[in-house]
Design a protein around this nucleic acid. Structure first.
Lengths: 137, 137
DNA sequence: TATTACCCTACTTATTTAATAGGATAAACA
DNA sequence: TGTTTATCCTATTAAATAAGTAGGGTAATA
């Protein structure tokens, strides 16, 4: 299941992407428009900034804005920053790999094989989708 | 992320499927072979039985066995019983649909559109895979 | 009738998620 | 220069979920 953090983050990024320009948007504006708790959204935007997706400006007229063009931001980046691994099990993760405690031989594991398929398909979608695609319509 | 419940459940079913026949296998046998806590596995097999995947026999020589041929058990069933929804958000779920609190118009939601794609792809894999496929090799 | 092995409810513990609180810092502007 | 505005940042908490544990009950076999 997608966490609310990720869901809210994507919605906020989509909102910013639809602005089209790099004029800062206040957290409160996004919070109201997308029905997201202001404080929660604040922490989400903070992590997006720390991970190089957003930039911010303090004080009057301040707010958050996208660092890059929406078309330059793949969903893989957004998902990995907000949600973590794209894979359903750590043992098939490309960026967050971890060995399973119970599995002596990973290549013989039925779950492993199945989840590689799922990962490859999901990855294909996220790689072929950028924030710009979400902003359309 | 896939829960351990689901992972262990799939492993246990694969173990049973590889037996080929309908001779009951004891929980303890599977527990040892697959490195799964006996008590935890017990509760997992119980839910699989209550959901029509397994049958059991009590007393000496008892244990669990598959009710149907592995080829007759699609991964969609197993996943829904053990993990719940296949979708990443409830608002795109076919079997566990729920409206989002924050979304006034679901058809306009960027997250919704993206997650429908992911769901369709994942569903395709699970529909085209049966327990028999996992038992091969 | 003793043993075996599943049946079933309840409980506990750990982890993660989803916030919330509250002050610090920096920019704009009068 | 001082006030307002809005982000920055750490810490805390509440709720939900996941993972595992306990322990007695029930049915089948020999």
């Amino acid at each position: 299941m997608l966490s609310k953090k990720t869901k809210y983050g994507i919605k906020a990024l989509t909102y910013l992407g639809r602005q089209g320009n790099k004029i800062p948007v206040q957290i409160a504006t996004i919070s109201k428009s997308e029905n997201i708790s202001l404080k929660f959204l604040e922490s989400i935007l903070l992590t997006l900034r720390k991970n190089g997706i957003l930039a911010s400006k303090k004080g009057k007229g301040g707010g958050y804005y996208l660092l890059k063009e929406p078309s330059e931001i793949p969903m893989t980046s957004i998902m990995r920053i907000l949600e973590g691994p794209i894979s359903m099990v750590p043992c098939v993760s490309l960026n967050f790999y971890e060995k399973c405690d119970d599995c002596p031989d990973e290549t013989a594991c039925a779950v492993h094989k199945l989840m590689i398929q799922v990962r490859d398909n999901t990855l294909k979608i996220f790689r072929n989708t950028s924030l710009a695609d979400l902003c359309k319509n």
